[in-house]
Design a protein around this nucleic acid. Sequence first.
DNA 1: GAAATTTTTTAGCCAATTTTAAGAATTCAC
DNA 2: GTGAATTCTTAAAATTGGCTAAAAAATTTC
Lengths: 226, 226
Amino acid sequence: MRILLVEDETSIANFIKDGLEEEGFAVDVADNGKKGLQMALENLEEYDLLLLDWMLPGISGIEVCRGVRKQNQQLPIIFLTAKDAVDDAVFALETGANDFIRKPFSFEEMLARIRVLLRNKAGEQTTFGYKNIQINLDTHRVVQNGTTVELTQKEFALLEYLLRNKGKVCRRTRIIEKVWDINFDHSTAVIDVYINFLRRKLDQPGATESFITTIRGVGYRINDDA
Amino acid sequence: MRILLVEDETSIANFIKDGLEEEGFAVDVADNGKKGLQMALENLEEYDLLLLDWMLPGISGIEVCRGVRKQNQQLPIIFLTAKDAVDDAVFALETGANDFIRKPFSFEEMLARIRVLLRNKAGEQTTFGYKNIQINLDTHRVVQNGTTVELTQKEFALLEYLLRNKGKVCRRTRIIEKVWDINFDHSTAVIDVYINFLRRKLDQPGATESFITTIRGVGYRINDDA
DNA sequence: GAAATTTTTTAGCCAATTTTAAGAATTCAC
DNA sequence: GTGAATTCTTAAAATTGGCTAAAAAATTTC
């Protein structure tokens, strides 16, 4: 799940970005309206949700919202507005926003609203599994045959991505975008290295095949069970 | 947690009532505005939240809201409005509602919003424990193996948060928000310092592992008791 | 208002994690 | 089979993030 955050105050932007990343979202930040609109339109398919500050230098949040809505009716958009700006809230909804959050907001509130809007897309599932491997997002644990396997953050994120897409090919470029960064060097071999880490930690010793199938020239896939 | 639901359509009212009762709320239903306002005002102290349908026979939801607000500024009020009634939503907020939910809504969405507004209200468990550690919110005491351990306020708050979420990861950003104030400073190392304080006070001398597990890049976790 | 306690900041250290790089192995097309 | 492309594996370098101690700042207590 990739979120575009358009927010000019660096401290707030970082706070939100860090928090959401800890929750497993990928977050890109634009620090002004022009850049925000540009990023949104250029990668319209990439983003699952747009978080828009109301007050922005240059192009305002409303204009960004309008611009995006012209191209895409579906993308969930949430506004961040000042506490008592009731009119702003109305206006935002009229312009096509799906929800708004009044500042100062608690992170939990924001997360609740994001989850509501992403529900159909993301599902709220917090555990995934393949055969004897279970991953749990709440506890941030991976259990295999009843024993915990220690994974690092990146290993965890990669496994989560593969399991979320169990049965489907995960293309290298997609993995780079979702697990690493959208701007990450595509020629890198980190993926290979991390796939290798996962295999070493999770493949059954003596098994002839890995639980992660390599699809040459394309990417990787964890097969459906059975 | 007692909720007053003012809704004239019996089927919807029952659906909401049943659902909320399953979640552990006590729910009273008024099937028109007049009755709703009356019940609300007579038992103002009893209710923790008001769910108000917009369209009501007789006295409208807005009028109920206004009437309640005259007596009580604090009571959280959520409106249920028709899907595209943007103006209604605005109007509701101006009249003093805290939030609104557009119909048709999902039960989860409603629950999420109710929980946000009820956060930090009473009626919760007041003791938590992990192995030999017991924390009591009423007496504000921590007891380990029968002897009281002196904790400062912040130490206590942090331990409380970790224990409330026993078994789950507590992400750094959430800890900062919940235990310290909403505070956009993510560069601080207070958390580390306080985790260290707790460990020094509560870890068994000679133990190989702390009772608080560090999850690098994510946060901390107190494991479920074995 | 001085002393004690609590909270927060700072900074160096260290270890775990992440990334890079490069040679080995495998696969595929011809 | 041969060669090119891709992936695997390993090791080493770079980076990050958490730990700790100590000091500074804020708050409470007497």
